[in-house]
């Protein structure tokens, strides 16, 4: 009756990880291939990175994508946090069921339908499609994810802290800003990150909501990929993967460092108390 993993468990995990990482590893490796052909290893080269940076269309699309991501993630975070507060703290108000359905529905809605419906809206309202329509579309789609993350934090967060603040004479809005917000800040930040990544990643909704002059990177990559494997895209992908990996690594290290610091200060406090 061992608690540890059996050889079968270890084999399953290993196979799973190989399956998950092999394609990515191949992609990264071949971004440094001097040859244009996948099957031929033409030696190490960074020529695709050079041509990537020289590719103005791709670089322009990347810049659009980042801008869309920053703005839409911020909007989604504000709206999603408000929605989460209303859902977690508002009690049973009229229309709550409709509201919670509205908040969470975009998460399970097929992207194609989301994109289509937003496009119809823009056409009906005679709004020219472009940068801002993509921003609106992405804010709408990612709002739900922020709400989920923040809501989860709010329900576990001890309500009596807020009550204590109000009991001590703090008005509601200031309570929210000085007590609630600092406590749910990690969840809000995580929600923003999630919204930002989802926005960077999105192809389908952006394709519907976008117009001339607002081509995002996934749209550009998609149109190139349809024509076949391109080493330039490999290079672009590698850069994206490196950026994500770095971000996650920093996040993990900072988290660990903070835990260690907390443990240390706790141990210090314990020692002082003992002495």
């Amino acid at each position: 009756m061992r608690k540890g993993p059996t050889p079968f468990n270890i084999a399953a995990i290993t196979a799973g990880l190989v399956f998950l990482y092999l394609p990515i590893a191949a992609l990264v490796l071949y971004s440094f291939n001097a040859s244009r052909l996948v099957t031929v290893w033409g030696g190490f080269s960074t020529r695709w990175y050079e041509s990537l940076f020289a590719n103005e269309a791709l670089m322009g699309a990347a810049w659009v994508t980042v801008r869309v991501g920053l703005i839409s993630a911020t909007a989604a975070t504000i709206l999603g946090t408000l929605a989460a507060v209303a859902l977690a703290r508002g009690g049973r108000f009229g229309g709550r069921t409709l509201f919670s359905g509205l908040v969470y529905a975009p998460m399970v809605m097929p992207e194609v339908i989301l994109g289509l419906s937003l496009l119809l809206l823009f056409v009906a309202l005679r709004i020219d499609r472009g940068f801002w329509t993509v921003v609106i579309a992405h804010s709408t789609c990612t709002l739900a994810y922020v709400a989920v993350v923040v809501h989860a934090r709010l329900v576990t967060f001890d309500r009596s802290l807020e009550e204590a603040a109000q009991d001590l004479g703090c008005p509601p809005i200031r309570t929210f800003l000085t007590v609630t917000l600092p406590n749910i800040a990690p969840a809000v930040a995580a929600g923003w990150m999630l919204a930002f990544t989802l926005s960077l990643d999105d192809l389908v909704v952006a394709s519907f909501a976008s117009g001339p002059g607002a081509t995002t990177l996934p749209m550009r990559i998609y149109s190139q990929v349809r024509l076949g494997v391109s080493p330039e895209i490999n290079a672009a992908s590698t850069l994206l993967i490196a950026a994500v990996a770095t971000a996650v690594l920093i996040y993990a290290i900072v988290g660990k460092w903070r835990r260690v610091k907390e443990l240390r200060s706790e141990a210090g406090a314990g020692r002082r108390a003992a002495a």
Partner: peptide
């Protein structure tokens, strides 16, 4: 397990074309 899913969906599908 989660890490690859912070990278682009499109890129992950694209990686399989080369394979």
């Amino acid at each position: 397990v989660i890490l690859p899913f912070w990278t682009s969906f499109l890129i992950r599908v694209y990686a399989w074309i080369a394979i």
